[in-house]
Amino acid sequence: MLRTQGLRYRYADDGPELAFPDLDVGRGKELLLLGASGTGKTTLLHLIAGMRTPSAGDVRLNGHPFSALSTAERDLARGQHMGIVFQTAHFVRSLTVSENLALARTLAGLEPDEARIESLLAGLGLSHKLNARVDALSVGEQQRVSIARAVVHGPGIILADEPTSALDDTNTDGVLDLLRQQASDSGAALLIVTHDQRLKDRMADRVELTLNPTAA
C-alpha cells in the first residue's frame, strides 16, 4: 500500500537535512509514529501525503512513486487513496456537514452517495447534524466529522496528525477507537503521527515505530 524509502528533507538549502526511517504499511495495518516535538513528525506525514517534496528518497503508493506525478496528479492520488485527520478539525465553512463529506467524495472523483454519508454519520452518532453548519458543531463533533470525512471515500490509508494530543484520557480512547474502527470497517491502513505517549500503550499490539530523525 504505502512504502517510503530513504526519505530525507531539508527545510532550507543551507540547513540540516532530516533523515527518516523507511516505512512499509500494508492495507489493514496500523502504525504509530511516535516522536517528540521538533523531530519532524508532521513533516514526515506531509512527505508521505505528497504535500512536500523530499530532498531525497521516495514515497510509493500502491507501487507507484509520488515523485513521478505532476502536482495535479499527486493531489488527485492523495484525494483518492488517502484520508487525512488533522490535529484541529477544519472544514469548508459555507457547506453543511453532509455537503463537506460529499465534497470529499466529489474531489476524489466519486459520486456524492448520500446513503453512504448518512450511514457513516449515523454510525458516529451524528445523524441529527447532517444538515448542520460545521461551525455550529462542538469541538468533539467536529473531530468525529473530520474522521468521517477521512474515510467517506473509502481510502486505502488514513493518516492522522496528532489526533489526540489535546484530549483527556477518555476522549483519547474514544477518538482512537473511532479511528481504528473506521479504518477496520473500510479495510484501510491507519498511520498515526503523534508525540502523545499514551497511544504507545494503547497500540502496543500493533507495529510500533519511534521516530528519531538524525541531522545529516
Partner: peptide, 10 residues
C-alpha cells in the same frame, strides 16, 4: 484542505 482532498490548483 481542498488540495489535500484531491482538488488540483486549477
Amino acid at each position: 484542505l481542498m488540495r489535500t482532498m484531491g482538488a488540483p490548483p486549477r
